[in-house]
Simulated scan of single mutants.
Amino acid sequence: MLQGPRKQDRYLLYLAIDVFSRYPVAWRIEYAETTQIAVQMFAAAFEKYGVPLVLHADNGASMRSHALIAALDEAGACRTYSRPRVSDDNPFSESLFKTLKYDSSCPERFDGIGHAREWTEQFL
């Protein structure tokens, strides 16, 4: 979660990385977590890079949604999920999140969602 200019302003980072190269194949910063945004992000990544053999995800509501599961099944991606309450089941993504948030150039608060998107684009 990235902080906006006011205390109640928070932005969510959607991120998909290739586990072998650690390359971020898709990312978005949005105001809220929704199934539609997750489906769009993965569809764009699949179009650009192809469908992965396995897609490993956390247990977030959008990742377990019927719409995303249907899209992944239709694309032919095998789905795996982190175990509940096991923080190191998705270490590569978690490591990148921490690296991003604790980078010395990462602002404590962004001026707005556009600023957060620009900074993240340059960082990634």
Rank of each mutant, 00 (worst) to 15 (best):
M1A: 12
L2T: 12
Q3C: 12
R6K: 15
R6M: 04
K7P: 06
K7C: 06
Q8P: 05
D9M: 09
R10Y: 06
R10C: 14
Y11H: 09
L12A: 05
L13G: 06
L13Q: 09
Y14I: 04
L15Q: 13
L15D: 04
I17T: 09
V19P: 06
V19W: 06
V19E: 13
F20K: 13
S21Q: 04
S21L: 06
R22W: 03
R22T: 15
Y23D: 08
P24K: 13
P24V: 14
V25W: 03
A26D: 04
A26Q: 07
W27D: 03
I29R: 07
I29W: 03
E30R: 10
Y31E: 14
T34E: 07
T34K: 12
T34C: 01
T34N: 10
A38Y: 02
A38G: 09
M41D: 08
M41G: 02
F42Y: 14
F42P: 00
A43D: 07
A45R: 00
A45W: 01
F46N: 00
F46C: 02
E47M: 02
E47I: 02
E47L: 04
K48Q: 09
K48S: 04
K48N: 01
Y49T: 02
G50L: 01
V51F: 00
V51W: 00
P52K: 04
P52D: 07
L53A: 14
L53E: 12
L53P: 05
L55I: 15
L55T: 15
L55Y: 08
A57F: 00
N59W: 07
A61T: 15
S62L: 01
M63Y: 15
R64M: 15
R64G: 03
S65E: 06
S65D: 08
A67S: 09
A67W: 02
A70L: 08
A71E: 15
A71N: 05
A71I: 02
A71G: 04
L72P: 04
L72G: 00
E74F: 10
A75G: 07
A77L: 05
R79N: 07
T80Y: 02
T80L: 01
T80F: 01
Y81D: 10
S82Y: 09
S82N: 10
P84W: 04
P84R: 12
P84Q: 13
P84G: 05
R85T: 10
V86S: 05
S87W: 08
D88V: 12
D89T: 09
N90R: 11
N90H: 07
P91M: 08
P91L: 03
F92A: 08
S93Q: 13
S95C: 12
L96P: 06
L96M: 14
L96E: 09
F97M: 11
F97V: 11
F97E: 10
T99A: 15
L100E: 07
L100M: 14
K101S: 13
K101T: 14
Y102N: 11
D103H: 15
D103L: 04
E108Y: 00
R109D: 03
R109I: 04
R109C: 12
F110M: 14
D111S: 13
G112A: 11
H115M: 04
A116Q: 12
A116Y: 10
W119T: 07
E121F: 05
Q122F: 03
F123K: 07
L124M: 11
L124T: 10
